[in-house]
Simulated assay, not measured.
Amino acid sequence: MPVRVEECSAPSQLSGNDAFSGHVLPPYTLLSVGRAFTGTQNVSSLQKDEAWRVNVRIQGCDLDQGYLCGTMEALNVPLADTPVVTFWEGEIIDAKNYTFYTGKWEATPDDDIKHWCKFPSFAPLLSQVETDGGKSLDLSNYPFIFMRWKEQYFVNVGIDCGLTIAGFYYVCFSCSDGSINGFYYDPNSSPFQKLELKSANEGHNGFTFSSYQLQ
């Protein structure tokens, strides 16, 4: 059943006019409610090359529980008359609430390691993750935040739209520039579909995002 999204602020928030200086910003600063990101998801298969333009907005965040949620909008989906919007919920890998091992959604520890290793920033953590899933790691000041995003339902189209949200995303967020990289995992879909997003500085580049009320 659809749920109402309760918004909660991260410890500190930046206005839409903030410029990125290249220095590492405080963790989670750019993951606050209302933050928007724009980019692409590569959905190419053996038959054809294809990429969808994607917008993401964070709608809720609870850092104590390692939780965040938001909407994802795909703009040029074939056979879709309108942009396709989904609601997703995320798990922040904080070694307290969640580790690097997923333990659900048909993902094995081997699947987890293969996907996390796609991120160069994960390399220094690999040996410890292989030992205990990363439970003993202190990630509070690490310049990258690792997450899993799981789409829960379609916001503006029916389940008969021909698309699937059975899988989930392995996500890496850069605290230095607010960029997001991710890889979609679904045993029944093309492997390693790459998600690439940049923080959208609204007011500077004219980026807009459709509004949806989630209830």
Rank of each mutant, 00 (worst) to 15 (best):
R4H: 04
R4W: 00
A10Y: 00
S12K: 13
S15F: 06
G16P: 02
F20R: 07
S21D: 14
S21I: 12
V24A: 12
L25V: 05
P26D: 02
Y28C: 10
L30D: 07
S32Q: 14
S32G: 13
V33D: 02
G34M: 03
R35P: 00
A36P: 01
T38K: 11
N42W: 05
S45W: 06
S45D: 15
L46G: 12
Q47H: 10
E50C: 11
E50N: 10
W52Q: 08
R53Q: 12
R53K: 14
V54S: 01
R57F: 02
G60L: 00
C61Y: 10
L63I: 15
G66D: 01
Y67N: 03
L68C: 06
L68D: 01
C69I: 02
C69P: 03
E73R: 15
E73L: 10
A74D: 05
V84H: 07
F87K: 10
F87Y: 15
W88N: 08
G90W: 00
E91M: 07
I93C: 01
A95H: 03
Y98Q: 01
Y101K: 10
G103T: 02
E106W: 04
A107G: 04
D110S: 10
D111Y: 05
D112V: 02
F119T: 09
P124A: 01
L125N: 08
L125R: 08
L126M: 08
V129W: 00
D132I: 06
L137F: 07
D138L: 00
F146I: 04
M147W: 00
R148E: 05
K150Q: 09
Y153E: 08
F154S: 07
F154W: 11
G158D: 11
I159L: 09
D160W: 06
C161L: 06
G162W: 03
L163M: 15
T164N: 12
F168A: 06
F173D: 02
C175A: 13
C175E: 14
S176R: 13
G178V: 01
G178N: 03
S179V: 08
P187V: 12
P187A: 04
N188E: 15
S189R: 11
Q193G: 08
E202A: 13
G203I: 05
G203V: 05
T208Q: 14
F209P: 03
Q215W: 07
